[in-house]
Design a protein around this nucleic acid. Structure first.
Length: 831
DNA sequence: ACCTCTGGCTGGATAT
DNA sequence: ATATCCAGCCAG
């Protein structure tokens, strides 16, 4: 570990990460010097081990011999505020002054205390206790870090202008958030890395643990323009390695290749990979050890959580893009699978370099191109749209108070947990243990529709089947966050201890809400919502601003959206440390209440309600009545009802969550229909898309007859192709994800698992998370994995059935009869 | 091993 | 033959 001191450092440094040194137990910070683009490691003089709080007395703690014998433990009495009891409390902090005295490694105090099972609410990490926030700029002053928040005068005037009507407490909160979010952003140099390993045994999957096969190629792509592939010299025939868009360096031995790789990545503050946590970095590390690179020259650290770097920051984009919240809210569902290929195609519109042979059979030139292609793709994912992903990470750090690496690794519940814990610490609140909350609040009073769920969720209105022209869709703007905000929901305010609050009931439930104290979660969600709606959302589409500034606002806007959308669900999740079922239940109940009142009102106004789901209402109407409804909601529900879109027409069957609509801007929305699902064969998707294309052009009821004829033609065409086997096996393959390992399906054996087992019998490895491609075949099992299928075996009748049911979801409401088309088509074939 | 939630649809497997 | 369960994918 470096012993850099901050004495001679430049004025501004960005905090990127923090942790404990595994052997010394000393706290350290990783800061970026933006001018030199180097990481400065600061061994924090004030840093100490994690410590714990207890409601128990100091005396009891001191009497425990296991603690005192471990030595060097201090006890500190401190005043905290217990939110659940709504009163101050004296707690005891256990502090390790010297971690080596209690076992010699970081975290041992925590383990000790947990083993002892004391009445301990929570351990702390020093970085949060000090209030440091990763992603923020700092100034070093007299051996300490001073945050460089945004210009206070500017923020004050914004807050004054936009949030004048908010109560003081909310306004203070908003101001603090703005000071963080509007602070300077770092420019960070980065390098993307990808390695290739070739095994002499063709079926062997390279294991990073054993690292028995050589690293034959390492591709590096830097934000400073670096484009390089380091390759092991192998006798594969004379290939031309010039004329490539990157440079190639050949190495006689692997040791030198690895050393050069390490040298390069050490000169960048950020190293990005795709799945580097589980493959590239551990492989490099273990391989280096195997071929005799000295320890000190290997910058990679492999921990339980993933791989990191001694000096720099490692970003595994696989983990980040795998995160569901990121997928949906930050990247707008642009990709649906978690492979580099799928993410690249979805976000950038291009994928990996195509190869026809297995990697082991590529010549050097082909291998170099393939390898560099991956590094280039990772680089593009990190840097497209003016480093959008990197900026997003920085914003997520500022909101969650996690380090950049932890934002990548943890899910959204981890982000919210950390944010809430930080806010507790910052305010001197006691962090309750899960048992403490559940002792009083493990209560629900509604019955879920779906068997086995904990409480009742949203309402879905039965659609009016048929085709509807000129339909307006109204949407409650962030309904659940608004419910949390307006109804003061938080784990401490729902079913609070005060008798006088019991009358303040949540509709449809047995819960009451505190009337004396503002709930922490409500305050946070409310402020973040206000900031997003009043500042970042409008700024992100403000045409007067330069493109770059707009991008920044849109990044923050999206990051806020991720937090807001997840802030309801986590309270209903067992694993969440502040799990509180009545909070989740109340949120949903308030949502239902507002939703059904709006629908009642619409009907009262004489507006026809076609459909509705959770927070959206489909209305067949006139504009004036819509306006009236919106005004009514603002006045009576204190919620923003907005026009989301207007459909020229929508087609509904009797099914909920299933419809097709064409908006006034000619966009076709297909929701929930089989033809759009991921696992469906492309053959059926294409047929479906052809039909959708015909429907796009329908403008009036009169156009329908024409479209109907065209669709019948389309169907006949596809039917004919199927009947004459004019398709490839890929065309008719289903693609279904295995959520667990094949042997763990015990209750039933679904088709994709049958296919997976056949693959495994062939010696191929299949594991949880893999997407299995299979074809429906004739014969007893009815299924064959794509790799083993033969065209003659395809069960055409089954596909016909599937095609039929896919189309029927739309056709029966359009008055098209699939059966008759089938009849005509087979008649033609007959003659 | 992974994990924010509930509601709703589908086809195939399995029990009756 | 029919009902129910299981598993996957999707809407919000």
């Amino acid at each position: 570990m470096s012993t850099d001191t901050p004495r001679d450092q430049p004025r501004k440094l960005f905090l990127l990460s923090a942790g404990y040194n595994g052997t010394s137990g000393k706290a350290y910070l990783k800061l970026l010097d933006p001018r030199r683009q180097e990481i400065v490691i600061w061994n924090d003089p004030t840093g100490h081990q994690p410590f714990c709080y207890s409601r128990e007395s100091v005396e009891k703690l001191k009497q425990d011999e296991r603690l005192t014998q471990a030595g060097a433990i201090g006890f500190l009495r401190e005043s905290k505020f217990d939110l659940m009891e709504d009163k101050p409390i004296e707690v005891t902090k256990i502090v390790a002054s010297d971690p080596l005295a209690v076992g010699g490694r970081a975290g041992s105090i925590r383990e000790l205390v947990e083993a002892w099972e004391a009445d301990i609410p929570y351990h702390l990490n020093y970085i949060y206790d000090r209030g440091l926030v990763c992603g923020m700029p700092y100034r070093v002053q007299r051996n300490d870090l001073i945050p460089l928040v945004a210009d206070r005068k500017r923020i004050d005037s914004i807050v004054e202008e936009l949030f004048a009507k908010e109560p003081d407490e909310e306004r203070r909160e908003i101001r603090n958030w703005m000071l963080l979010l509007e602070a300077d952003q770092p420019e960070i140099k980065h390098v993307s890395l990808d390695i290739e390993v070739v095994s002499p045994v063709s079926t062997r999957v390279p294991s990073p643990g054993r690292a028995e096969d050589p690293v034959v190629s390492v591709a590096l792509r830097g934000s400073d323009g670096l484009k390089k592939v380091l390759m092991l010299k192998r006798d594969l025939g004379g290939e031309l390695l010039s004329g490539l868009p990157f440079t190639v360096q050949l190495y006689e031995n692997e040791k030198d290749l690895l050393k050069e790789t390490f040298n390069t990545i050490e000169s960048y503050p950020i190293v990005a990979t795709f799945n580097g946590d589980d493959f590239d970095l551990p492989y490099l590390r273990n391989r280096a050890e195997r071929v005799g690179v000295e320890r000190s020259a290997v910058p990679v650290l492999v921990g339980r959580q993933g791989a990191s770097l001694k000096r720099g920051i490692h970003l595994d984009l696989y983990r980040l893009f795998f995160n569901k919240s990121m997928q949906i809210y930050a990247f707008n569902n642009a990709y649906r699978e978690n492979t580099l290929e799928a993410v690249g195609q979805g976000i950038l519109g291009r994928g990996k370099v195509e190869i026809e042979k297995p990697i082991a059979q590529l010549n050097l030139r082909e291998l170099a191109c393939y390898n560099f292609g991956d590094a280039e793709l990772v680089h593009s994912l990190l840097s497209y749209h003016n480093d959008l992903v990197l900026r997003l990470l920085v914003v997520l750090c500022r909101i969650s108070k996690l380090t950049i690496e932890d934002v990548c690794r943890q899910g959204v519940s981890g982000w919210i947990k950390n944010l809430l814990f930080y806010e507790h610490r910052a305010r001197g609140y006691l962090i309750p243990r899960s048992e403490d909350i559940l002792k009083v609040k493990d209560v629900t009073s509604t019955k879920a529709i779906i068997e086995g769920k904990k409480y009742r969720g949203a309402i879905v209105v039965k659609p009016v089947p048929g085709m509807h022209f000129d339909v307006t869709v109204l949407d409650f703007a962030s309904l659940y966050p608004s419910a949390l905000k307006e109804w003061n929901l938080s784990y401490e305010t729902v079913r609070c201890p005060h008798l006088d609050c019991r009358g303040n009931r949540v509709p449809e439930t047995s819960h009451w809400i505190c009337t004396k104290r503002k709930g922490l979660q409500s305050l946070l969600v409310g402020s973040l919502r206000n900031i997003r709606v009043a500042w970042y959302k409008p700024k992100s589409s403000d045409e007067h601003l330069p493109e770059e500034t707009r991008t920044w606002y849109s990044v923050v806007q999206r990051a806020l959206k991720v937090f807001l959308n997840a802030s309801y669900g986590v309270f209903g999740a067992r694993i969440f440390p502040l799990y509180c079922p009545p909070v989740a239940e109340s949120t949903a109940a308030i949502g239902r209440h507002a939703f059904s009142r709006a629908i009642e009102k619409a009907r009262e106004l004489g507006v026809k309600v076609i459909y509705g789901d959770t927070d959206s209402i489909f209305l067949e109407t006139d504009k004036n009545l819509v306006r009236m409804l919106i005004d009514w909601a603002a006045r009576n529900l204190r919620l923003d009802l907005e026009i989301d879109k207007v459909y020229r027409y929508v087609v509904f069957s009797t099914r909920k969550k299933n419809y097709l609509g064409v908006t006034t801007s000619n966009v076709v929305d297909v929701k929930g229909l089989t033809g759009k699902k991921r696992h469906v064969p492309i053959f059926i998707k294409k047929a479906f898309d052809d039909m959708v294309e015909k429907l796009r052009n329908v403008r009036t009821p009169e156009d329908l007859a024409e479209a109907r004829r065209e669709i019948e033609d389309v169907l006949r065409d596809w039917y004919h192709k199927l009947n004459h086997r004019e398709f490839s096996l890929e065309d008719v393959s289903f693609h279904v994800m295995m959520s667990r390992a094949p042997e763990r399906y015990v209750k039933t054996t679904p088709q994709h698992v049958k296919a997976a087992r056949k693959l495994r019998d062939q010696g191929l490895s299949v594991s949880a998370g893999d997407i299995i491609s299979f074809v429906k075949t004739r014969g007893r099992e009815g299924v064959q994995p794509l790799q083993l299928a033969r065209k003659e075996d395809v069960d055409v009748d089954k596909y016909m059935e599937y095609l039929e049911s896919t189309f029927d979801q739309v056709l029966d409401t359009l008055g098209i009869n699939f059966k008759s088309i089938k009849g005509i088509s087979s008649l033609e074939d007959f003659f």
